[in-house]
Each structure stands twice: as C-alpha cells, then as structure tokens.
C-alpha cells in the first residue's frame, strides 16, 4: 500500500463499548490503510463492526486504543469542533434513507455543505449546478424531496455528498432502500465520480449488488478484518 497517498490510516485500533460492568469489543487491533481514489466496501454480518469502523473514519466516534489518521491528520485528542471541521471540509456522507431536508429544493439540499464551508454564492451556484448535473437531476433542481422518487432522492444525497469535492465519501447501505435498477444506476454514478474526481468511497453494505462495483472488499467479522480483497477487474466497472 502507498502510505503517501493514504486517505485513512488505522494503526492497531481497538474500540470498546461499556456494557453493564463489562466491555463489548466492537473493533479489535485494526490496521488499515485506504488510499486516494479507492472504491472500498466494508462487508460483514450485523455486529461485525462495519458501522463502528465507518463512525471512527468519519470522526463521529473515537478509538479506545490505537491511532487514526484521516488525510494525514491524527484524530487522537481532537475536539468535536475539530472533527466537525474535518468532516465539513473533507468528507461526504450518503445514508440509506437519504436524509434530505424536506422544506428545501434539490438545489438547496445540495447547497448546504457549501454554505457550511462559507463558499460565496457565485461559486455555490456553479458547484451545485455541476453536482446536480453529475447525478443527472438538472431538470429537478427546484423540486422538493417529496416530489422525487427514491432513486432521485438518493441521487440528490449523492450530489450533496460530493458537491464540495471531498477527499472521502462514506456511504452506509446506500442502495438498501432502492430497487435493482435504481441501485445499479446509483452505483454507476458513484463509480463515475470515483473515476472523474478521484474521490475515495467507503461503503458499509450487505448488498450483493454493490459488490460487483467494488475495487476493494474488506471482510469484517467479530470486529476484526478477516479478509482484505483487492478486485482487479470489478464486474460492473
């Protein structure tokens, strides 16, 4: 693995949760390096540690032991605000249930990360239009989420995740609420963005449909990496 190009670096990371008087170990001695432009899936059964790993990568949770670096910045002993800043500047999130704000249009939903990053309005207009175009929703830019299909909602969420061109996008079960056709459509969009923007993607998923797009699959079981598989020729790439 190329350390210079690393987006995420886990060094002997353990995560424990207190349960009653004891601890539940969600992640055990994880060493992991994710490079720029990777299209990686975290797969494994429920309770295997996928979401915990995603949380720690996103700075939503911290490791009990070990060191985590995101884009060369150690997340050890960082405040909430510092981690929020890392997320705001360098990360995008895609959720299973889209989480669009219902009173805002597609344009405004996509605009939110740029507002938080204090991008001026001219630049915002340009970037949002571009992001909406990437996901093929230019004709829906003024529609509210209630007027969109599930697939269109998820495309809006993707546009919101990539509008500020983050180094890393994390997606938790992004196709779980979609039918097969929409799932493939979404994954094609994400694959294209990965290729064109060199953005790294990390998926937590059970969905077999996604597997065919992944370039790297990390199998988790009982909080440990059981298998780290590089796919040279993904089925749907």
């Amino acid at each position: 693995m190329n350390i210079k190009n690393s987006v995420i670096k886990f060094n002997n990371v353990t995560k424990r949760f207190p349960v009653g008087g004891d601890y539940f170990i969600a992640l055990k001695n994880i060493d992991l390096l994710l490079n720029k432009g990777e299209f990686t899936g975290l797969v494994g059964p429920s309770g295997s540690g996928k979401t915990t790993l995603l949380n720690i990568i996103g700075g939503l949770d911290s490791a009990s032991d070990g060191n985590v670096s995101v884009l060369g910045q150690s997340l050890e002993n960082t405040s909430h605000n510092e981690r929020a800043k890392v997320r705001r500047k360098n990360m995008g999130f895609i959720f299973q249930s889209y989480n669009l704000l219902p009173v805002y249009s597609v344009f405004e939903n996509v605009e939110l990360p740029l507002i938080l990053n204090k991008i001026d309005s001219t630049q915002r207009l340009k970037k949002v239009n571009q992001a909406i175009e990437w996901v093929g929703l230019s004709d829906k830019r003024d529609s509210r989420p209630s007027m969109l299909s599930g697939g269109e909602c998820q495309r809006t969420a993707i546009a919101r995740a990539i509008v500020h061109q983050p180094a890393l996008v994390m997606a938790d079960e992004p196709t779980a609420n979609l039918d097969a056709e929409n799932s493939h459509h979404i994954m094609k969009i994400l694959t294209n963005l990965n290729r064109e923007l060199s953005t790294s993607f990390v998926f937590a998923t059970h969905d077999e449909k996604i597997m065919g797009y992944l370039k790297r699959i990390i199998h988790l079981e009982d909080g440990q990496i059981k298998k780290d598989q590089l796919i040279k020729n993904p089925k749907f790439s």
């Binding site: 996103g58 605000n81 929020a84 890392v86 997320r87 705001r88 939110l112 938080l116």
Partner: peptide
C-alpha cells in the same frame, strides 16, 4: 432530531 443529526454529520459544529 433528524435534521439536526444530518447537520452534525456533515460537519456543522454542535454549538
């Protein structure tokens, strides 16, 4: 709750 959660996730400070 949902809206606030989203805003926190995408990096808006809690304060």
């Amino acid at each position: 709750y949902g809206e606030v959660g989203l805003r926190l996730a995408i990096g808006e400070p809690k304060g």
